[in-house]
Nucleic acid binder design. Sequence first.
DNA 1: TCCTTATCAGTAATAGTTCCTATTATTATT
DNA 2: AATAATAATAGGAACTATTACTGATAAGGA
Lengths: 122, 122
Amino acid sequence: MRETKQRTAILEFLRSKRQHCSASEVYDAVRVKIPNISLGTVYRNLGNLLEKGEIISVETSDKCVYYDGFTSSHAHFVCSECKNIFDFPLTLDAHKEIDDMGFLVENERVVYYGKCANCNKK
Amino acid sequence: MRETKQRTAILEFLRSKRQHCSASEVYDAVRVKIPNISLGTVYRNLGNLLEKGEIISVETSDKCVYYDGFTSSHAHFVCSECKNIFDFPLTLDAHKEIDDMGFLVENERVVYYGKCANCNKK
DNA sequence: TCCTTATCAGTAATAGTTCCTATTATTATT
DNA sequence: AATAATAATAGGAACTATTACTGATAAGGA
């Protein structure tokens, strides 16, 4: 994989941002630096970075994928009202049961859907 | 909500099937009974049934939504070797921490990636 | 039976994502 | 530094899951 300014910019942006971003948000942000970057390039590189494990992704109910530059594993909470995504630490022994059965968990994806504290109050 | 043979057939199919199905799989299956059912009708009724809580949905990484007539939620384990998908019960108090913060968890999706007991032995 | 209107079939439109191709830029080699 | 080989790019067309629209149909109450 060659190093290109496009991919570097995408990764840098995702790492600098503390929120999860959709592909088009990444596109808009990176376009400030590289005005003629293509949306296809954004998608291709998000795919590459995902495969290399440099970023992670979350699927929400609004049918578009969100990307996250923070790879240390954590659970996601997607609010159905305000559409914000919150991070939570993973409960450490969540898959103890599975381990005990001889399964090897290499990666885990935990997403909660519901209403965040703010929206739930209303 | 009126009772229609279309919605009944969709729900019956999802309950009879032990796997998660995409909208078009539901469409194909129900078309055996009701040849001229429309795909739009399938989507509309899947939406209705979801809203009523009669079925649940899971978003996977392959960008289409899967529907399940078994509403009790469970975790999935995807084996990277044999590609089988295993069901596990969810740890009950997994999101206690989140509840305590005033968040309302309406749905959760837990997917583990790794090697199943069989493939791990080798 | 008749009326109201939710639901339907069929189809067009939408939107996120992927694919295609000529061009550009990176990396290794001379 | 110049060259060659080719991975990655820009731009746009194509693809596909889903939603929206419209006139026709049928469920269910009066």
